[in-house]
Amino acid sequence: MADNNIVVMHERQMNKVKTASKVGGVAGKVLTYLFLTIMALIILFPFYWMIISSLKTLDEYRMSVPTFWPRVVMFSNYAEAFTVGKLGRLFLNTVIVGLVSTLLSLVITVISAFAFARLEFKGKNILFAGLLATMMIPGELFTITNYGTVTSLGWKNTYTVLIVPFLVSVFYIYLLRQNFLQIPNELYLAAKVDGTSDIKYLWKVMIPLALPTLISITILKMTGAWNSYIWPRLVANDGVHSLITNGLRNAFTETTGDVNYPVQMAAVALVSAPLFIVFIFLRKYIMKGVSRSGIKG
């Protein structure tokens, strides 16, 4: 009762304060929305510029006073970008690498996280701490040796080289282990008593309960393939196994000077589109995954 009274009193007082500050509040609200609108426009402008530039003719793009809406809508720029950049092959490569590496990575992550979360073995904690410590080291440090390793394995210019070195992510194992730990151990023990196998238990109980984390991992992994640039440039530069970002950069080498920007912007738009489409459908998972990871693919 006493608590209730305090809450009611608190609310009354708040209402008084609210009316008192209403006049100043309106001005504040207007300023807040004004600030957010200006910032949002700045954030959106490059996307807008990319799209309208990709639809202009070269002559219109080069006018000294720019137009903010294309006079003639040139969808043909997209077709040209697709052929000039040989984007078809690049899209296919990226999808293959993305799908295979995501699938294998998920399997490895799930069984490793399961071992760390549910099984007891000697040295578990030391091993886990050791794994976490490797997360601090910048990736460039690994690349130097890995480049030599994959060369001597004869993996250069194959899909393998784009998939295998990055299959294990300590961070994903950590993320999933935390998720698994939240599932009561009693469920596992009960399943053991019933004679359920580990794999069946994983499949029927743990994976469904950890699905949001698995979806986040999938998205991060796929965008990783989409955005990777440095590693494929080093080890898969034969043109056959190139990924989309490399292809984009190689086909449109010039960024300054006299460039056919409408076609280049069309290529950029084509490469960006899949990420946006995924984002529209899976916004919630992406934002959740990112806020926990801080890793840009």
Binding site: W226, M265, S272, K296
Partner: peptide
């Protein structure tokens, strides 16, 4: 965030 830093870099260059 949902962009490719090379692709959008090309837009900024433009």
């Amino acid at each position: 965030y949902v962009t490719n830093s090379i692709a959008i870099g090309m837009v900024f260059a433009a």
